[in-house]
Measured scan of single mutants.
Amino acid sequence: GTLHLNGVTVKVPSLEKAIKAAKKFAKKYNLEVQVHGNTVHVH
């Protein structure tokens, strides 16, 4: 999967790991997580 954090793109081995990391990051910075196919966006 691919993880987008505020314009930074990170390749992640699995989508589940990407979503987990995204949710952790989003919670910390009070951001929103959106999943588009195998790409996770945090903004």
Rank of each mutant, 00 (worst) to 15 (best):
G1F: 15
G1P: 11
G1Y: 15
G1C: 15
G1S: 08
G1T: 10
G1E: 08
T2H: 12
T2K: 10
T2L: 14
T2M: 13
T2Y: 15
T2W: 15
T2Q: 09
L3V: 08
L3Y: 01
L3E: 01
L3P: 02
L3N: 02
L3G: 02
L3T: 03
H4M: 11
H4V: 14
H4A: 05
H4W: 13
H4G: 04
H4Y: 11
H4R: 08
L5I: 14
L5C: 15
L5D: 01
L5F: 15
L5G: 03
L5S: 04
L5N: 02
L5A: 05
L5T: 04
N6M: 14
N6P: 10
N6G: 12
N6S: 07
N6R: 09
N6Q: 08
N6K: 08
N6T: 05
G7N: 08
G7R: 06
G7V: 08
G7L: 08
G7Y: 07
G7T: 07
G7E: 04
G7M: 08
G7H: 09
G7K: 07
G7D: 04
V8P: 03
V8Q: 06
V8W: 14
V8E: 03
V8I: 13
V8L: 13
V8A: 07
V8D: 03
V8Y: 13
V8T: 08
V8H: 12
T9S: 10
T9F: 13
T9V: 14
T9W: 14
T9L: 14
T9I: 15
T9E: 08
T9A: 10
T9N: 06
T9K: 09
T9G: 04
T9C: 15
V10K: 05
V10N: 03
V10L: 12
V10Y: 15
V10Q: 03
V10P: 01
V10I: 15
V10S: 04
V10T: 05
K11W: 15
K11D: 07
K11G: 06
K11P: 08
K11S: 10
K11E: 06
K11N: 10
K11Y: 14
K11R: 13
K11L: 11
K11C: 15
K11I: 11
K11H: 12
V12Q: 03
V12H: 06
V12T: 06
V12W: 12
V12R: 04
V12L: 15
V12A: 05
V12D: 01
V12S: 03
P13G: 12
P13I: 13
P13C: 15
P13L: 11
P13M: 11
P13S: 14
P13F: 09
P13K: 14
P13Y: 10
P13W: 12
P13V: 13
S14R: 06
S14P: 03
S14C: 12
S14F: 09
S14L: 06
S14M: 06
S14I: 07
S14K: 04
S14H: 08
S14W: 11
S14V: 04
L15C: 04
L15T: 02
L15Y: 04
L15P: 01
L15I: 10
L15D: 00
L15F: 06
L15G: 00
L15N: 00
L15S: 01
L15Q: 00
L15V: 07
L15R: 02
L15M: 07
E16N: 09
E16T: 11
E16Y: 10
E16M: 10
E16K: 13
E16V: 12
E16D: 10
E16A: 14
K17I: 12
K17F: 12
K17E: 11
K17T: 07
K17R: 12
K17Q: 11
K17P: 01
K17N: 08
K17A: 13
K17W: 14
K17L: 13
K17G: 07
A18C: 14
A18N: 00
A18Y: 07
A18P: 00
A18R: 03
A18M: 09
A18G: 02
A18T: 05
I19P: 00
I19N: 00
I19Q: 01
I19K: 01
I19T: 01
I19C: 06
I19G: 00
I19L: 10
I19M: 06
I19V: 06
K20C: 14
K20G: 04
K20F: 06
K20I: 12
K20V: 08
K20L: 11
K20T: 09
K20W: 09
K20M: 10
A21V: 11
A21L: 15
A21S: 06
A21P: 00
A21Y: 14
A21W: 15
A21N: 04
A21E: 06
A22Y: 07
A22H: 00
A22C: 14
A22I: 15
A22L: 15
A22S: 01
A22K: 01
A22R: 01
K23T: 08
K23Y: 10
K23G: 02
K23W: 10
K23I: 14
K23D: 01
K23F: 10
K23R: 13
K23S: 04
K23C: 15
K24W: 13
K24G: 04
K24H: 08
K24E: 09
K24N: 07
K24Y: 12
K24Q: 09
K24R: 13
F25T: 00
F25N: 00
F25W: 13
F25P: 00
F25K: 01
F25Y: 11
F25C: 11
F25S: 00
F25G: 00
F25I: 06
F25M: 05
F25H: 01
F25E: 00
A26R: 04
A26I: 06
A26C: 02
A26G: 04
A26D: 00
A26L: 06
A26E: 00
A26K: 04
A26F: 08
K27P: 01
K27R: 11
K27H: 04
K27M: 07
K27C: 11
K27G: 03
K27V: 04
K27L: 06
K28M: 08
K28R: 09
K28V: 05
K28G: 01
K28Y: 07
K28S: 02
K28I: 08
K28N: 04
K28W: 11
K28Q: 07
K28L: 08
Y29S: 00
Y29I: 03
Y29M: 03
Y29N: 03
Y29T: 01
Y29C: 07
Y29G: 01
N30E: 04
N30Q: 07
N30R: 07
N30I: 06
N30M: 09
N30A: 08
N30V: 07
N30K: 09
N30Y: 08
N30T: 05
L31N: 02
L31S: 01
L31E: 00
L31P: 00
L31I: 05
L31Q: 03
L31Y: 05
L31W: 07
L31A: 04
L31F: 07
L31K: 02
E32M: 12
E32C: 15
E32P: 03
E32A: 09
E32Y: 11
E32G: 05
E32D: 08
E32K: 09
V33S: 01
V33Y: 05
V33T: 02
V33Q: 02
V33P: 01
V33D: 00
V33W: 07
V33M: 06
V33C: 08
V33G: 00
V33F: 11
V33A: 01
V33H: 01
Q34V: 14
Q34R: 11
Q34N: 07
Q34W: 14
Q34H: 15
Q34T: 14
Q34C: 15
Q34L: 13
Q34K: 11
Q34D: 06
V35F: 06
V35R: 03
V35D: 02
V35L: 05
V35N: 01
V35A: 04
V35I: 11
V35C: 13
V35W: 08
V35K: 03
V35T: 03
V35S: 01
V35G: 01
V35P: 02
H36G: 03
H36N: 10
H36D: 11
H36A: 08
H36M: 12
H36E: 12
H36C: 12
H36L: 13
G37V: 07
G37L: 06
G37R: 05
G37H: 06
G37T: 04
G37N: 06
G37A: 05
G37F: 05
G37Y: 05
N38M: 09
N38R: 09
N38P: 04
N38S: 08
N38F: 11
N38C: 11
N38Y: 09
T39D: 08
T39R: 09
T39Y: 10
T39V: 13
T39G: 04
T39I: 12
T39E: 13
T39Q: 11
V40Q: 02
V40K: 02
V40H: 03
V40E: 01
V40P: 02
V40T: 02
V40R: 02
V40F: 03
V40S: 02
H41S: 14
H41A: 12
H41K: 08
H41L: 14
H41N: 08
H41M: 14
H41F: 14
V42E: 02
V42T: 03
V42Y: 07
V42L: 13
V42D: 00
V42M: 11
V42K: 03
V42Q: 02
V42A: 04
H43Y: 14
H43S: 10
H43K: 10
H43M: 11
H43L: 13
H43A: 09
H43P: 02
